[in-house]
Design a binder for these strands. Sequence first.
DNA 1: TCATAACTCCGAGCGTCAATCGGAGTTCGA
DNA 2: TCGAACTCCGATTGACGCTCGGAGTTATGA
Lengths: 134, 134
Amino acid sequence: MTDMLRFPDLALGELERAVLETLWDVSPLNPGAVHERVAGGRRISVNTVSSALKRLCEKGLLEREKVSHAYVYRPIVTRADLQRQLIGAIANQFGEEGGSGFLAAFVDLAEERGVETLRRLEQMIAHRLDGDAD
Amino acid sequence: MTDMLRFPDLALGELERAVLETLWDVSPLNPGAVHERVAGGRRISVNTVSSALKRLCEKGLLEREKVSHAYVYRPIVTRADLQRQLIGAIANQFGEEGGSGFLAAFVDLAEERGVETLRRLEQMIAHRLDGDAD
DNA sequence: TCATAACTCCGAGCGTCAATCGGAGTTCGA
DNA sequence: TCGAACTCCGATTGACGCTCGGAGTTATGA
């Protein structure tokens, strides 16, 4: 899956997600430090965390830098970047034909969260439309 | 992925997606008919399509009705429903704390598609805000 | 009536991918 | 120099989707 609901390279596992969140919080960190923070509750070896770290690097979400003999890891995409990529991926899979349906689905969602959310959204948009005078 | 980027029951495979699209287009259809439409290009057995059909039922995206000795399948969620569910899933995984980040990411995306899209979005929202007088 | 075609259900094998860890080798620091 | 921490490699396990074959059931038509 792969197309509509699966995102090959954005697809993160639970551990990977926790690791990413941790590094968004504070970075750079070495495997040991990440392990400490992420292993809250779960009984996991440092190696397991290292695997996740490595996978995340391969996916282009983290970068690492050699410090003495080891590496420290840091995110190269922000939470916002990832959000954008994800939303974009979904949007694409629902046909480009304008994406009206997608927009509507989103507005529905915002509405569900309350009128307040809707208003906030409206403001954001107004702001953008002001910005680009076009 | 599983939490942030994976959606257990919304996660569809490529075949599943094609099948769903087909049925959104025309339904109900029996396995043979779905196979005909979906097997365009791919060399696939009817059984394979039946598997997908069955999985989709188990996921609650399709329902089937017995007609004589066999079943005909039809979607029970619309494309829009699925969009909403998907977007909702993503939104949830990015923290509920208001979801400002999520809103912003979305607006970014809309902006990328052009001011036209942004305006369309604005209108949709205005419309909702009118509707619910609250 | 009987053969054929189409279905259903079951189960099995394959590929991918995340999670998990052990072992071997390397290096920094006390 | 010894130990702790890391890196890299490889292996296993468990999901899950794709793919199909076989066995059993049923409707249809010659």
